[in-house]
């Protein structure tokens, strides 16, 4: 079992490959890995309640073991309130991301 830190900076509205990182997170988790999905920049646009065809609730259903975090600065920059987040998303910050990045043996994927 490995520790994966998947950092998603993209959003499903701009890119034609919207589910890639969410599917990858689910697949890696299904194989027994410890998976964190850290949303940053426009990646946090899926955290707002009311997003249509949102891949986050689907990921939560498929792979409840995946920890989903959203960068506080990226949320604040976009006016997304912590009180208006999709269920299962935790507000995090860059210090916590660094802690994840320096974990011994962690596999890091930026997308």
């Amino acid at each position: 079992m490995a520790q994966y830190v998947l950092i998603e900076s993209r959003d499903p509205f701009e890119y034609g490959d919207p589910l890639y990182i969410y599917d990858l997170a689910g697949d890696l988790s299904a194989k027994g890995n410890d998976v964190t999905l850290f949303l940053v920049q426009n990646g946090v646009l899926t955290t707002r309640n009311g997003v249509k065809d949102n891949p986050l609730p689907k990921l939560r259903q498929k792979a409840p073991g995946v920890s989903v975090h959203a960068d506080d600065f990226s949320l604040r920059e976009r006016g997304i309130s912590a009180a208006n987040l999709v269920e299962g998303v935790s507000v995090s910050n860059i210090d916590s991301l660094v802690d994840l990045l320096v974990q011994d043996g962690a596999k890091i994927v930026w997308h």
Binding site: S9, V40, Q41, N42, D71, F73, S74, I94, D95, L97, V98, D99, L101, V102
Partner: peptide, 19 residues
Amino acid sequence: SGTTTTALRIIDAAVRKGH
């Protein structure tokens, strides 16, 4: 791109933690 900002934030946070 926002990646420059995020990268600088990561670098800054890492060195503040002594890495």
